[in-house]
Amino acid sequence: MTTTIIKTTTRLLAPLILVFGLYIILHGHLTPGGGFQGGAVVASGLALLIVAHEHKKVKELFERAPLSQLESIGALGFLGTGLLGLAGYTFFKNVIANSGFLFGGKTPIGINPGYLNTGGTLAYMNIFVGMKVLAGLTSIILIFFLILKEGEK
């Protein structure tokens, strides 16, 4: 399956796909996209990397990848960001917005060019959920790939 054409295409395309996915995750509160979509894009880039390499190479590449840790950090971080709203307000209240913290800049009302330093908890939740979706989908693809290759032997 791993011909020279696939390997060369992957070498050219995979960095672009990964960077595009990270852009979608980071700009989730400004442009179309968000954590789920960006995580799926990053996972598809990693799937391209998985498919284009030999079985042994994939195993040694992803042996140390902290996928389950990333998934747990994403879930707990999402929950924790939601719990932040309990400090005086309700669950999932956007407390960081307009507070001056990171991602807490003043949000203009109406049509604006879009400033990255706004969004409050939404930006954090986008990042955490993107991490979680990325790790989950990549581990699904990885375990299917490893199982099917083991079965062929």
């Binding site: 968000g34 939601g82 956007n94 604006n112 706004t118 939404l122 989950g136």
Partner: peptide
């Protein structure tokens, strides 16, 4: 924009107004 402080209305619904929905969805995933 004033309540969820995001330009993207869909993201503000997913993560702010319907946050419990997203929490359950993360659990399902």
């Amino acid at each position: 924009q004033e309540e969820a402080s995001a330009n993207n209305v869909v993201t503000s619904i997913v993560f702010d107004y319907r946050g419990f929905d997203t929490l359950g969805e993360a659990t399902v995933l």
